[in-house]
């Protein structure tokens, strides 16, 4: 019974979240296009481009007036038949690489792109080094000749002399 109630509650929460998100995603004004392909390109572009006013939102999420202007501009350029590359280039020329949520691979962004991988390799390296050290410490060290002779003597004494 309790399991069922919990499941129902979870389902309700999920539904709420799903509906809540889709409600937020409705753009302030809907752009009209002649073809479905154009509409899809628009939807993708406005999600990949950052609003420079509220810098952690993309163009579709932002309610800033500039974001509305830029959405209008993107829509117009799509209707004029410009390619995605042309539209992105148009914005990068004006606002810099910052408008791209996926920054381009270039000298200034190597650390950004490869940093996580670098950290992973570094971490694995440290881990490997530590493990190797531990094994080296705990591995049995063979007896030296003197120690071996000494041990032999003790054992022999024990066996011969008894008590």
């Amino acid at each position: 019974m309790i399991g069922l109630r919990v499941a129902r509650l979870l389902l309700g929460a999920l539904l709420f979240l799903a509906l809540g998100n889709s409600a937020l995603a409705v753009p302030a004004e809907s752009a009209r296009f002649e073809t479905e392909a154009q509409a899809q390109r628009y939807q993708r572009l406005v999600r990949e481009l950052r609003c420079t006013v509220c810098q952690n939102q993309n163009l579709i999420e932002s309610s800033a007036p500039l974001a509305a202007d830029l959405r209008r501009q993107v829509a117009q350029m799509i209707r004029e038949g410009q390619s995605d590359e042309q539209i992105v280039a148009y914005l990068v020329v004006r606002y810099g690489d910052f408008v791209l949520f996926r920054p381009p691979l270039q000298a200034s962004t190597y650390l950004l792109w490869f940093g996580p991988g670098l950290l992973l390799v570094l971490g694995l390296g440290v881990l490997g080094w530590k493990l190797w050290q531990r094994r080296a410490r705990t591995a049995p060290v063979p007896l030296s000749d003197d120690e071996y002779a000494c041990l032999r003597r003790l054992l022999d004494d024990d066996a011969g002399g008894g008590r």
């Binding site: 420079t52 006013v53 007036p65 500039l66 202007d69 501009q73 004006r94 606002y95």
Partner: peptide
């Protein structure tokens, strides 16, 4: 008035 020159100049704030 419509902010188009502003866009060309990269005006955002």
């Amino acid at each position: 008035a419509d902010g188009n020159v502003g866009i060309d100049w990269g005006v955002y704030a």
